[in-house]
C-alpha cells in the first residue's frame, strides 16, 4: 500500500509541475459544455438525460486523454522501465496510477459539473446523491482506461487504439453514470443510489481485474 501511495504521489507531483494532462482534460470538458447548448439548443441541452450523457462522454474522453499523457511522460527517458524493474513496481504501478488519475479526474469532473449546472441552468434536486454518483462514476473510469493504455503501450497506433479498446468496455459504465446523474438531477433518490451502487461494483471489478492483469501485461 505504501508503494502504491508513493507511485500516486510521484504522479501527482509530476502533473502539478507539468499539468498538460489535467489542463487538456479540463479545457476539453469546458469547451464541450459550452458547445452543448449551441449545438442541441437550450431546451434540449437542459434535459437531464442529455446533459448527463454529454458530461459523462466528455469525462470518458478526458480520462483517456489524461491517462495517455501520464504514460507518455513515463515513456520519455524510459522512466516506466525503472519503475517496472523495481521490486513490486509492476504491482504498485496500476494502483498508484488509479489513485492519482482518480484524484485528477475528480477535479476535472468538479469543474465540468459546476460549469454544466451553471451554464445550462440545470435543476438539481439531490446534490448529495449527484456527488455520490459522480464520485463512483469517476472512480470506475481509470481502471479500464489504464489497462487499455498498458495493453497498447508499445504500439505506434496507441493514440487511435486506446479509445477503440476502451469505449466499448466503458459503455455500460457510461449508461449507469448517465442514468444515475439524471436521476439525481430530477429527484429520483432510489434510482440515483441504485446506479451509484452499480458504478461502485464496476469500479471494484475493474480494479481487481487491473491488479491481476497489469503486472503480466506490462512485460
Amino acid at each position: 500500500m505504501n508503494r502504491i501511495a508513493l507511485v500516486a504521489a510521484r504522479e501527482l507531483r509530476a502533473e502539478r509541475r507539468q499539468p498538460d494532462g489535467i489542463v487538456a482534460a479540463t479545457t476539453f470538458i469546458a469547451v464541450l459544455v459550452l458547445l452543448e447548448s449551441l449545438v442541441v439548443g437550450p431546451v434540449i441541452a437542459r434535459d437531464a438525460d442529455v446533459a448527463a450523457a454529454l458530461f459523462w462522454i466528455a469525462l470518458a474522453f478526458a480520462t483517456i486523454l489524461t491517462t495517455m499523457r501520464s504514460f507518455d511522460r513515463e515513456l520519455e527517458d524510459d522512466a516506466l522501465d525503472a519503475l517496472v524493474a523495481l521490486p513490486g513496481g509492476r504491482d504498485a504501478l496500476f494502483g498508484g496510477k488509479v489513485l492519482a488519475l482518480t484524484a485528477m479526474l475528480l477535479l476535472v469532473a468538479a469543474v465540468g459539473g459546476i460549469l454544466s449546472l451553471v451554464l445550462l441552468d440545470l435543476p438539481l434536486a439531490l446534490p448529495i446523491h449527484l456527488a455520490i454518483v459522480v464520485l463512483f462514476g469517476v472512480v470506475a473510469l481509470p481502471p479500464v482506461v489504464i489497462v487499455d493504455v498498458i495493453l497498447a503501450l508499445r504500439l505506434r497506433a496507441r493514440a487511435a487504439l486506446v479509445p477503440i479498446l476502451a469505449l466499448p468496455v466503458l459503455v455500460p459504465q457510461l449508461v449507469a453514470a448517465t442514468r444515475g446523474a439524471s436521476a439525481a438531477l430530477v429527484g429520483d433518490d432510489v434510482g440515483a443510489l441504485s446506479w451509484a451502487g452499480l458504478l461502485f461494483a464496476f469500479a471494484v471489478v475493474y480494479a481487481v481485474l487491473g491488479l491481476t492483469i497489469v503486472p503480466a501485461a506490462i512485460e
Binding site: 507531483r13 509530476a14 502533473e15 511522460r73 524510459d78 522512466a79 522501465d81 525503472a82
Partner: peptide, 14 residues
Amino acid sequence: TLYIGHRPMLLRGL
C-alpha cells in the same frame, strides 16, 4: 537488481 538503461530512466516533471 538495479537496472539502469541506456536512457537515464528519470521521470520528467520531477
